[in-house]
Design a protein around this nucleic acid. Sequence first.
DNA 1: CCTAATGCATATTTGTTATAGGTATGATAC
DNA 2: GTATCATACCTATAACAAATATGCATTAGG
Lengths: 113, 113
Amino acid sequence: MAKTNAAFMSGIPELVVLRLLSRSEMYGYELIRAIRLTSGESIVLAEGVVYPTLHGLEQRGLLKAKEKLVKGRVRVYYQTTAKGKKRLVAIENDWHRINNGVEAILRRLICQN
Amino acid sequence: MAKTNAAFMSGIPELVVLRLLSRSEMYGYELIRAIRLTSGESIVLAEGVVYPTLHGLEQRGLLKAKEKLVKGRVRVYYQTTAKGKKRLVAIENDWHRINNGVEAILRRLICQN
DNA sequence: CCTAATGCATATTTGTTATAGGTATGATAC
DNA sequence: GTATCATACCTATAACAAATATGCATTAGG
């Protein structure tokens, strides 16, 4: 468990990657910064997390990769596919459901066994 | 990945167990029902998840166990200790921080890289 | 020159949850 | 009376995903 993230991270990389790349295409390094900045430093994913995630999502057809040569350096741009967007909707729903469940327990809206 | 829970579950068992047992003592089976009901069926933890969690938390001094004989049957009641409540506050904070980070990305409040 | 930042990649470890069993008692229904 | 379900506990193993720790190569800055 990292000092910065500390638990509650399962599923998060897939969710945030699909979400950010559904809006605009990005390359890995850029995406890592975007996750950190957009989350207000709350979510910091190392390269060893993001790159395998990108490769996995691409293999599953949820992302599409495209190589570009920028300043003599190869960048791999990724973009969420239509299939990826469907998947995104599904896991967003899952995330909200789990979240509501936890909130209900923390706030104890309902009660009694 | 379970059909009911589907990702986003890391850290959740510890959090909800510490939270529910900080309010009132419960025995394992009762706790399992309480998690399911209080979360509105959103979070369903099997016995194979809850019992090891209880044992682990007790070993770490975050829970205190007490055996009771009820209707000729032994029940093990658990209760969150003072140390457990401190830990609870810490992971509740972690949980909210991660949550806010994900929300910011989903809603894209902030932007630009 | 040397260092930091950029940019990609992957093998291995670690930590947790999920699964799938196992034991035993009490209550209910047929 | 006996079959079945709910109660109540337990643990070993599998499965999975993130974290860690690397490696390589290029560019910009001091």
